[in-house]
């Protein structure tokens, strides 16, 4: 645990020093909204359509973060340095997932209000509690799978391709739940509560893949 905190601190420090990942993710999300405005030919969105646009925007921005998650480790010897230390190797999974989760939350703190401002028809306020709940659960799943996929992709030759191409289908169940779950709070005729089944699917997804990632992560570090 102390190791994971040390790695996470280091990752956040690198991000604060470079400002590379999170600003890029946020800008990307905003641009996606603009594209959706023209692509769909709509000034405001609500309900399922709004939920879908938000989901896709978060997903694509998240992909940027997933792609970059292990790049410094690979290019600047971080893997070797970590593996030399007498520490539990799974703490790297924990730290990286926590870092990615943090990036996603910060992204959404920017993207969701912007979405409310630019595209959302109904007002954002009443939707927030339900929206936040679904997004946090989805972020957890994206963080776990993203970390796993990123750790695999970073050691491949075509890592910019392998990450998204493997990650996208793996994320589909979480994205289905996210898109369907956020539709109710974003409904045109007033925010409804999130159907329980989508929260359950997200929770199940998070738990299953967190356990699985924990079990297999070590095999990605051996050499």
């Amino acid at each position: 645990m102390r190791t994971a905190v040390a790695v996470l601190r280091k990752d956040l420090l690198v991000e604060l020093r470079t400002f590379e990942t999170v600003p890029a993710m946020a800008l990307f999300a905003l641009t996606t909204f603009v594209i959706f405005h023209f692509g769909l030919g709509r000034a405001t969105l609500s309900g399922q359509l709004a939920a879908g646009v938000l989901t896709v925007s978060v997903l694509f921005s998240g992909m940027l973060g997933i792609n970059r998650l292990f790049v410094t480790e690979r290019e600047q010897g971080g893997f070797d340095a970590f593996l030399l230390a007498p520490v539990d190797r799974t703490s790297l999974l924990l730290a990286k997932a926590a870092a990615l989760f943090t990036f996603l939350v910060v992204l959404e703190l920017i993207a969701v209000p912007a979405f409310g401002l630019l595209l959302l028809g109904p007002s954002l306020g009443p939707a927030l509690p339900g929206l936040a709940l679904v997004l946090l659960l989805a972020d957890l799943g994206i963080a776990v799978i993203g970390t796993l996929v990123s750790a695999i992709a970073v050691h491949t030759r075509a890592r910019d391709l392998i990450g998204p191409v493997v990650g996208l289908p793996l994320l589909i169940p979480a994205l289905i739940a996210m898109a369907r779950g956020t539709a109710a709070p974003l409904a045109a005729n007033g925010a409804a509560s999130v159907p329980l089944k989508w929260l359950e699917v997200l929770a199940l997804y998070d738990v299953v893949f967190a356990l699985l990632a924990y079990a297999v992560f070590d095999f990605l570090l051996e050499d």
């Binding site: 695999i152 493997v166 169940p173 289905i176 369907r180 990605l220």
Partner: peptide, 25 residues
């Protein structure tokens, strides 16, 4: 081989989860 195995295990676990999510949708 190692990475492919990790992928195969995760993907196999994905099969039932995916069915549940699509079914509910």
């Amino acid at each position: 081989g190692r990475y492919a195995s990790v992928f195969a295990i995760v993907a196999a676990a994905f099969v039932p989860l995916n069915f549940i999510a699509v079914r509910l949708a």
